[in-house]
């Protein structure tokens, strides 16, 4: 299924709030534990107790430092998993049809029993969202927890991705980005949700909410009336005290 659907009924995806993410890696590990026991082959680890431990993860959290033209440097924690692109180059390059984008909800998946492990889709993805499992020899990627979000064995409120459910700061949101009534759609509208590397033309479904402006002193004139009171007068602090106490 290497051709992309012309359009999908829904655009399920994640909205990640960079203003709120504290970089705790909870989503990283929750994703690993859910997915290593669920969809497809386990997410293996090589040399797990040795010199170069390395394993398959579907979600990773980077930390960036941003130096604005003025003011102190800022730090932004940056979780990254598959963005379930509308124009997903990872799908069209796949020679076997293993990679596909679902018509009903737009989730980009790998059908592992068709995957030959050629790695081409990982090359095609600009975002590093695909990792080849070294033990199984098939391509792994975020499934948007397709085996949770419709899973009737899971209580309804938990039919959300594992990473979203676990995020302690509430920085991850899941929903249908094609639905203007959805929470995620509104968040994107309100907070100016952005695409990563739009110049790649992938049209990611996942959106990132930029950090709110930081280190900007408030506009209220706090220095004037608020801090300049009692002591200026002849009676000083204790004069103020007496006057105030009178009123109590």
């Amino acid at each position: 299924m290497t051709t992309l659907p012309a359009s999908t009924d829904k655009k399920l995806g994640l909205v990640i709030d960079l203003d709120t993410c504290v970089g705790c890696h909870a989503c990283v590990i929750s994703c690993k534990e859910w997915n290593t026991g669920s969809y497809g082959a386990p997410l293996s680890d090589q040399d797990p107790y040795g010199a170069e431990p390395s394993g398959t993860f579907l979600n990773r959290v980077h930390t960036y430092e941003v130096s604005p033209p003025s003011g102190p440097a800022q730090v932004v924690h940056f979780p990254k998993s598959c963005l379930h692109c509308e124009d997903a180059p990872c799908v069209t390059v796949c020679p076997t049809g293993a990679s596909y984008k679902r018509v009903e909800d737009g989730i980009v998946l790998v059908n592992e029993s068709d995957c030959i492990g050629c790695g081409l889709c990982a090359w095609a993805c600009p975002y590093g969202a695909r990792e080849m499992d070294q033990a199984e020899g098939v391509m792994k990627k975020c499934t948007l927890c397709v085996d949770r979000i419709y899973n009737e064995n899971i209580p309804e409120e938990d039919q959300i991705p594992s990473c979203v459910r676990t995020c302690p700061a509430g920085a991850r949101h899941f929903g249908d980005l094609a639905d203007p009534e959805s929470g995620v759609f509104k968040l994107v509208e309100m907070r100016g949700g952005m695409d990563l590397m739009p110049e790649q033309g992938t049209k990611p479904v996942n959106k990132y909410l930029p950090p709110r402006p930081r280190d900007n002193p408030p506009e209220i004139d706090v220095l004037g009336p608020l801090l300049a009171q009692s002591t200026d007068e002849a009676t000083g602090f204790f004069g103020w005290l007496d006057r105030t106490l009178e009123k109590l």
Binding site: A26, W34, R165
Partner: peptide, 21 residues
Amino acid sequence: YIEGNRDHPINKGVLCAKGSA
């Protein structure tokens, strides 16, 4: 799989990286 207990007073369902690990 280990997930947070939604009813629990401390974490109300969420879990940190260590907890999931």
